[in-house]
Write a protein that binds this DNA or RNA. Structure first.
Length: 262
DNA sequence: TTTACTGTTAGGAC
DNA sequence: TGTCCTAACAGTAA
């Protein structure tokens, strides 16, 4: 369930378990329709080690020593696991990196929307994709300049990876819920102070989820994440949670305290 | 059996 | 040129 915090948790797992081990080989599962590195590209890693990781928005990179990077995108349902052995190998493993000594890095992706590719230079990759600044790093001014100037719905702006990298459907809803903004509100009609408040809330939400390693049960009860269902009681006022489609995505919100500004 | 889904992107409409 | 919206992608689960 990968947005920025989930990807950061995955990056940490990789950094903790898969660095500084010699790569012996790779194995592939059922991979029709899944984009993975060619045999030629995979061969470039054999005998080398991963020594560093990076993440930008929802994109994860694992750097090999003096060589290319393995880029992982988790798509809609992807995840990664580092395991010492294959005792309880899960279903839907599409791609595995095998290290000396039996450690394995698994890329699991039931829905096949994720991908693994080889990237020569991470900054070039980010530039080529046209990704905006990472959502945890963007400053208040830059946020106001991009999100605050968008002519469309504020939620669509938050979801645009070109403006801001890392926010997806769940945490966009959470941010708007806490800030009290209707997802449909036109972004460039919001008051400056409201945009600034949204920026602060977004980063505090993302950081809090990162701090729990994206374990939702550890998040406070009054967060929208625990009430994403039509008819649930709002945890911030006496309203009722409703659902509507904004920018093609399902949005949960409280019509009572999330004001429209369009 | 039908419907919805936490991401990305090509193509079309303004 | 830029911006925005929709549909499609593949598979599972409710």
């Amino acid at each position: 369930m990968p947005e920025l915090p989930e990807c950061e948790a995955a990056r940490k797992r990789i950094a903790d378990g898969a660095l500084n081990r010699t790569i012996e080989g790779f194995s592939l599962g059922e991979v029709s329709h899944v984009e993975l590195p060619s045999e030629e590209d995979r061969a470039r890693f054999i005998g080398t080690q991963f020594t560093r990781t990076r993440r930008h928005g929802k994109y994860i990179f694992i750097g090999s020593k003096d060589g290319p990077w393995l880029h992982i995108h988790l798509g809609m349902a992807g995840s990664v696991r580092v395991m010492e052995n294959d005792a309880d190998l899960a279903d839907y493993i599409r791609f595995t990196v095998e290290f000396e000594g039996g450690t394995r890095l698994h890329f699991r992706d039931p829905r096949k929307f994720g991908k693994v590719t080889v990237v020569e230079d991470v900054d070039d990759f980010i530039a080529d994709k046209g990704l905006g600044p990472d959502a945890l790093e963007i400053g208040d001014n830059a946020f106001a300049d991009t999100i605050g100037k968008t002519r469309g719905a504020v939620k669509s702006a938050l979801l645009s990876q070109k403006k801001l990298a890392g926010v997806g459907n769940l945490w966009a809803d959470e941010t708007l819920y806490r800030t009290g903004i209707d997802p449909d509100a036109t972004a460039n009609t919001l008051e400056q102070a409201k945009v600034s408040e949204m920026h602060a809330n977004m980063q505090s939400i993302l950081q809090a989820v990162v701090d729990t390693n994206a374990t939702y049960a550890k998040l406070p009860d009054d967060w929208l994440i625990h009430h994403r269902e039509e008819g649930e009681a709002c945890s911030r006022c006496d309203g009722t949670i409703a659902k509507k489609t904004v920018g093609g995505r399902t949005s949960y919100y409280c019509p009572e305290h999330q004001a429209g500004a369009s």
